[in-house]
Design a protein around this nucleic acid. Structure first.
Lengths: 348, 348
DNA sequence: CCACCTCTTGGGAGCGCTCCCAAGCCTACG
DNA sequence: CGTAGGCTTGGGAGCGCTCCCAAGAGGTGG
């Protein structure tokens, strides 16, 4: 067993694996990359060498030679990681991680603050070369999607900016979720149903409002615009909106808040006004977060399959990348909508 | 303006920048890496070329040539990302991101499930070559820290496994936080104070218990072991522990739970037993999570500076990496403890 | 028996960058 | 006026891998 050249410090290289297996570098590479053009015997020899040496390919070298990186970036608006504190963020990551588990792909986490940073980011993403980008929480005026589109960077977006989004997208069914929530309130005999919306430049918030409108209209209820109060997803905003609502329509008997946190704000105001939940006013939230479960009374809420959204986004992105590199032009921009589920608790 | 060789597809390379600036490749590299051994004039010329060409260094090439990666990994036990759903996870990431903001470092997110995966992970981390590792939520029997230590990989750990941890660590002051919580209960006139602990193989949980014991002893209260109920950080576990507590010492007049979620479980059981909070029993949690703010009554809780922990861990890691690469032997293993803060609400 | 394939295989040519040596230039000093 | 020494500078030699061409081996048909 000639102890060939034993490199003192570093990890074994392809060349060493090849030498150990008694084959050429090219052949070893073929085995490691699963090319079919290798005899079974050779393959075995190389695989044995890999095992013995504990060889792991050097990513940087691969990236440089192969002009790819085996890495994707998850871009999160930094300003919102806190807003994401509710399961959202970690569940997305879980989902992405799960989908990546038996891949060689790495996950790069990129926090981008303001729009300027996001613009710079696009540069980086292409220069630092990730193979694809996952975008979450995109606002109507976010330049990033267009930039990525132009750069031809495979990307998947969650929370479409608008219906005409060019990028593949994965979303939960905000419309149906909202509709189900309102239908539920109607089935409870409520007739004067208000809604507190999120920031309407977030597509999902708009869709939730649409769902509300649809359900109200379908039930033949009075579609009073005064029953619609805009807010910003914050607890304080929810409280403020609830006060407005109460001032405009004191006879309100149900509220659909577009997030649990806003519902929490609304609950506070309803309490202070002497109204009981759900006796006087029914309350429904959205997200089914920890806040919902621990509210008093526990909050009926619309659950989104967040982890699955992460999984699905990733799967779609990997496909997109595969297509792109195999030269196919992806005709169909996948546009996936995952179902939501109403979780009924005591607040309604 | 001789249009030199204009590469059709790709981004500009160092070579092109050099040509544009009329200097050699080596010189261009020096400017870009901020070497002082360049004349001001040359520097300007290169910088201009960089700007004009929109040059961004190729990471893979750098990594390959320089034998470093400009990337660090944040290792999260996958099994716990959900447990992390409370601000923890996202706040840590925020902190890390903030500390990395004006660095060239990238953040790699690594979810590792079980111990076997974590073992494999160590391989990957060295082979895929990250420059350093951030470890959060480490259990007593986790093999990863030792592996990283052996491999000589710069690492920083949060939540030390045991006091004798070899790696640099950043932690919040669980001991003082717990003590402050119990002192607060004592100052409220409580005399029979119980505690619900987290998994004691998590260092922080152990420290919280230590803090409880210390405060009880210092106040000269009866240190009855029956007032200590172990649980697992879960709501259900908290409820179970509370039931045991009530069975053993029905006269309990205060409970310090080592997490808000467990406090929520305890609250439920206390309610069911007909006890009022805080009139009959005071309740204090730990984490100051959303659950605490929205509980009924709002929960007094110990806040940890999680985002700052992320920031600090990262800073320490970057220093560690810098030392390592400049050949200094890091004499002192930083061991940083960040202060906690008691947030008093109506539950106590 | 030879031309022509197909299947494997080896290894050269880079990918874009950092490291480092040697060369060129200038200043200062003997 | 010659020479040593300090600054800058250019560019060769890889880093470890993938891509791809050409060559060898074995088989087949005319």
């Amino acid at each position: 067993m000639a102890a060939a050249r034993v490199r003192s410090g570093g990890r074994p290289t392809l060349e060493e694996v090849a030498a150990r297996a008694g084959v050429g570098r090219g052949t070893a590479s073929r085995v490691i990359n699963g090319s079919p053009r290798v005899s079974a015997q050779t393959r075995e020899a190389v695989e044995a060498a890999v095992a013995e040496l504990g060889y792991v390919p050097n990513r940087a070298a691969r990236a440089l030679a192969g002009n790819r990186t085996d890495a994707i970036a998850l871009v999160v608006p930094e300003s919102e990681t806190r807003f994401f504190a509710e399961p959202y963020f970690s569940d997305i990551v879980r989902g992405v991680g799960a989908a990546l588990a038996d891949t060689e792909m790495q996950l790069l986490l990129t926090l981008a603050g303001n729009d300027r940073e996001r613009r710079r980011l696009a540069q980086y993403l292409t220069a630092h070369r990730v193979d694809g980008v996952l975008l979450v929480s995109v606002h109507a005026d976010d330049p990033l999607p267009d930039l990525l589109e132009q750069l031809g960077m495979p990307s998947v977006i969650s929370g479409r900016r608008h219906a005409a989004e060019m990028l593949p997208s994965v979303d939960s069914d905000n419309f149906e979720g909202a509709r189900a929530a309102v239908d539920h309130l109607i089935s409870r005999g409520r007739r004067c149903i208000a809604t507190i919306t999120g920031r309407l430049d977030v597509y999902g918030a708009q869709r939730r409002l649409d769902g509300y409108r649809k359900a109200v209209a379908a039930a033949g209820l009075d579609p009073d615009e005064r029953l619609i109060a805009p807010a910003d997803f914050s607890e304080e905003g929810g409280a403020r909106a609830m006060r407005e609502l109460l001032a405009r329509r004191p006879d309100v008997d149900a509220v659909f808040a577009a997030s649990d946190v806003m519902a929490a704000g609304a609950r506070q105001v309803l309490r202070e006004s002497g109204r009981r939940i759900p006796d006087d006013v029914s309350l429904v939230g959205f997200d089914d977060s920890a806040v919902a479960r621990h509210m008093d009374p526990p909050l009926t809420s619309v659950r989104q399959p967040i982890e699955e959204m992460g999984r699905t986004m990733t799967r779609v992105l990997l496909q997109e990348i595969a297509h792109r590199s195999s030269g196919e032009s992806p005709q169909d921009r996948p546009r996936i909508v995952l179902p939501t589920e109403l979780v009924v608790r005591e607040s309604s």
